[in-house]
């Protein structure tokens, strides 16, 4: 049985942090709305790794239970976000986020 110590936890937290930050970069820089929402899913995956690693470290299943709810929220988010993308595409004929610049106010 392999123990799961501090060093192992730190490795997994680093992977989760890198996934999350790569997702933020995609969210901020990409202009295609579909890729923007795909980047949020990347951020979700980093958070899942984080939660499950902490759950393993602390020997309880709260992390995994929270990650299950996170999956449900991610599915709901994907459905609503893609519905919005289709709606916006029908209005403007483009999925460029810059096509909606006037929303900045």
């Amino acid at each position: 049985m392999n123990p799961f110590g501090d060093l192992a936890l730190q490795r997994y937290l680093a992977v989760g942090a890198i996934l999350f930050v790569v997702g933020i970069i995609g969210f901020l820089t990409r202009r295609n709305l579909i890729i923007v929402f795909l980047s949020t899913e990347l951020m979700f995956q980093g958070v899942v790794v984080n939660l499950v690693a902490f759950g393993r470290y602390h020997h309880n299943l709260g992390g995994q239970a929270l990650a299950m709810f996170l999956l449900a929220v991610a599915a709901a988010e994907a459905a609503v976000a893609l519905g919005l993308v289709v709606l916006l595409y029908r209005r403007r004929g483009s999925i460029d986020a810059e096509a909606w610049r006037e929303l900045k106010g």
Binding site: L28, T29, R30, R31, N32, I34, I35, F37, L38, E41, Q45, L71, A74, A75, A78, A79, L82, V85, V86, Y89, S94, I95, D96, A97, E98
Partner: peptide
């Protein structure tokens, strides 16, 4: 959920809306 449901939805929308490579794919903000 991800590979089976969410990703398939994304690919559907990509096929629907992003058939041609537009300027928004080749330039970052």
């Amino acid at each position: 959920i991800y590979a089976g449901a969410i990703l398939v939805t994304y690919v559907f929308v990509i096929m629907l809306a992003a058939r041609v490579q537009a300027e928004c794919d080749t330039h970052s903000r």
